[in-house]
Design a binder for these strands. Structure first.
Lengths: 111, 111
DNA sequence: CGCATAGTTTGATGGTTGTCAAACCATGCG
DNA sequence: CGCATGGTTTGACAACCATCAAACTATGCG
């Protein structure tokens, strides 16, 4: 059960967080993490129908931006949202984005 | 006093809004618009020390993403935030981002 | 009409990004 | 140790982006 390097929350920049969330796949990943709790890299790749290296790339982006936390357990890497820390750093931000994303999805994709 | 074409708010996509705000200059522009009200393209270029064509490019991005409204009056084009419409479309989002941006700026740039 | 002013458009350039595939690395199981 | 499995890294490619400069457009003033 190892931990991986993560940026300290005070070093997390708002523009980096917003950039990470501006990709539809990464936004969907964050919504799923918020809804279903933690998941693994492989499961995400399957669920979203993308190559595993692409999933790895997005998860790295999310980790480096400060949004997700990665915990290694055996061969698996579990990703989770750094929800409390983010709420502390940017109060209300994650909630607003999550509810906007959920509403956006429910309303149907505006092609 | 002419109006320019703007996207309808129901066509505004969350990821586009986040992408528009993920550029430090555009985020700063939005903060200024929220604080000081409307401004012109040329003033922004001066204030931020960027070329006027760069300012024009960023303002176009902000307009197309649905964040700002452009009103032409004579030779000047006044930009303003589509605050109420955005609040209606994505409740709480703009406020959370603005307060995060202001807090981030006050805390000093984390190089 | 002619000119100055405010913005936009069009290159051109250097840098970043998302994607897949293939090679690679690390971990645990037998 | 050898192998399968879960992820990462690298390479390649096409698309996109921020920036400046220069040419262009549009507007109002005299």
């Amino acid at each position: 059960m190892r931990l991986l390097p993560h940026p300290a929350m005070e070093d997390v920049e708002l523009t980096e967080v917003l950039r990470a969330l501006s990709d539809p796949i990464r936004l969907e990943v964050v919504v799923r993490l918020a809804t279903d709790g933690e998941t693994t890299c492989g499961k995400l790749g399957e669920d979203l129908g993308i190559h595993k290296s692409t999933a790895s790339h997005h998860l790295r982006t999310l980790r480096e931006s400060g949004l997700v936390f990665t915990k290694q357990d055996g061969r698996l890497k579990y990703m989770s949202l750094r929800r409390d820390e983010l709420d502390d750093r940017f109060p209300g931000l994650l909630d607003a984005i999550l509810s906007a994303a959920r509403q956006d999805t429910r309303a149907g994709a505006h092609a």
